[in-house]
């Protein structure tokens, strides 16, 4: 879409975060965060509970406002607050820990709602597109069911399909497998690997280290509202540079 804005040969930044600070009242949940994610890159964010991982990715798509610093999506500045239809955050899609499917709509309607409201095409065309995506996450046969009729793993796959139907340029995941029963985690991870391999830009908060090793280009480790360490997964897991990361890894691995 805006691939021609920069004429550099290097890959474009999908997300550029600079000096971003976020306060909840007096409490500084994000402290001067700097992070660049290039187009097509897969980044895994991890860190102890309360370190600000959710807050960070919620800032990227505007679910949270921030007080200072900058956020750019494909080179376009996104302010602390949302800014109507032209907001560059419209290029993001998000998958939540608790799925957050709309319980009063069928699986198919969940997937087509946003494209329909954004007039992406006729109902038939959007239905066909959604079914294609649902097929990809292996849940096409459930298209006419309601979310409450599905298992957790199935619901999360629908949520991924719903995000994909927006054809977002950046996919955000916030602990997509944390609310699942252990036996359902893999079916969701498999879909996420597949999505990752299709070249999407992904920022994924997760403690699934196997997933991180398999698909992540970089691992971002956060603690107490700061980015403590950024490294390639193989380096991060074998030789963490900081004590805080080492301690965290000893707990989750």
């Amino acid at each position: 879409m805006c691939s021609s804005i920069t004429d550099k040969t290097e890959v474009q930044n999908a997300v550029t975060i600079s000096e971003l600070s976020k306060f909840y009242g007096e409490f500084e949940a994000l402290k001067h965060i700097d992070l660049e994610v290039t187009q097509g890159e897969r980044v895994v964010v991890c860190g102890p509970s309360g370190s600000g991982k959710s807050t960070l990715i919620r800032c990227i798509n505007g679910l949270e406002t921030f007080q200072s610093g900058g956020l750019e999506i494909f080179g376009e500045a996104a302010g602390g607050k949302r800014n109507g239809k032209t907001d560059p955050r419209h290029k993001t899609g998000m998958v939540f820990q608790n799925f957050n499917l709309f319980p009063h709509m069928t699986v198919l309607d969940n997937c087509t709602l946003s494209p329909r409201k954004h007039k992406r095409g006729t109902r038939d065309k959007l239905d066909a597109l959604a079914l294609e995506v649902l097929d990809k996450v292996k849940i096409k046969d459930q298209a006419d069911k309601y979310p409450s009729q599905l298992s957790g793993g199935q619901q999360q796959r629908v949520a991924i399909a719903r995000a994909l139907c927006m054809e977002p340029e950046i996919l955000l995941f916030d602990e997509p497998t944390s609310a699942l029963d252990p036996e359902m985690i893999n079916e969701v991870l498999d879909v996420m690997v597949q999505v990752a391999n299709e070249g999407n830009t992904m920022i994924c908060v997760t403690h699934e280290m196997g997933f991180a090793r398999k698909v992540a280009d970089r691992v971002v480790f956060m603690d107490a509202g700061e980015i403590v360490e950024i490294a390639k997964p193989e380096d991060f897991f074998s030789t963490p540079k900081t004590d805080r990361a080492a301690e965290f890894l000893s707990q989750v691995l």
Binding site: N61, G93, L113, K117
Partner: peptide, 24 residues
């Protein structure tokens, strides 16, 4: 989470209210 999902899908405020919130 319903409001969050609506926002993450970039629905307008009116769509959020009329299609997501009001029916529930």
């Amino acid at each position: 989470g319903q409001w969050d999902a609506a926002k993450a899908l970039h629905l307008s405020r009116w769509d959020t209210i009329s299609v997501i919130i009001a029916p529930q």
